[in-house]
Amino acid sequence: MAGTLELQRPVEESRSQTENLEKNLAERVLIEQAKRLLAAQHGVPVEVAMAWLRQQVRDEQCTVVEVVRGIVEARTGTRG
């Protein structure tokens, strides 16, 4: 029984790490998508679009994911 529990803990930790990495990757993809959408819509480089996103986060006092999710949903008509 103790052997099973010893093996189960690393498996659970690995699963948790995998879920965390997948969440972070999905958020990163969303950020990149929002940057491209803003850059294309306003005809600016992606660096300028990212600076705008950072300013929005500061102004709205929320996370970058909240800001970019709203942008992507508004522009694409999808909900994440």
Rank of each mutant, 00 (worst) to 15 (best):
M1H: 08
A2G: 12
L5M: 14
L5T: 14
E6P: 03
E6Y: 09
L7C: 10
Q8W: 06
R9Q: 15
R9T: 08
E12F: 03
E13T: 01
R15Y: 04
R15S: 05
R15M: 07
S16Q: 13
S16D: 13
S16G: 08
Q17I: 01
E19F: 05
E19D: 09
E22C: 05
E22D: 10
K23W: 05
K23F: 02
N24G: 09
L25C: 10
L25D: 08
A26K: 14
A26D: 11
V29F: 07
V29S: 07
L30I: 09
L30N: 06
L30V: 07
Q33S: 13
Q33K: 15
A34D: 03
A34V: 04
A34L: 04
K35R: 11
R36S: 09
L37V: 12
L37S: 02
L38K: 03
L38T: 03
Q41W: 03
H42F: 14
H42L: 06
H42G: 00
V46N: 01
E47W: 00
E47P: 00
A51W: 04
W52M: 08
L53A: 09
Q55D: 12
Q56T: 13
Q56V: 12
Q56D: 09
R58Q: 15
R58V: 15
D59E: 15
D59V: 09
E60D: 12
E60R: 15
Q61I: 05
Q61R: 14
Q61F: 04
T63Q: 05
T63I: 05
V65G: 01
E66I: 06
E66R: 10
V67C: 10
V68Q: 01
R69H: 04
R69D: 03
R69M: 02
I71K: 08
V72W: 03
V72P: 04
A74E: 11
A74D: 08
R75P: 00
G80Y: 11
G80T: 11
G80N: 11
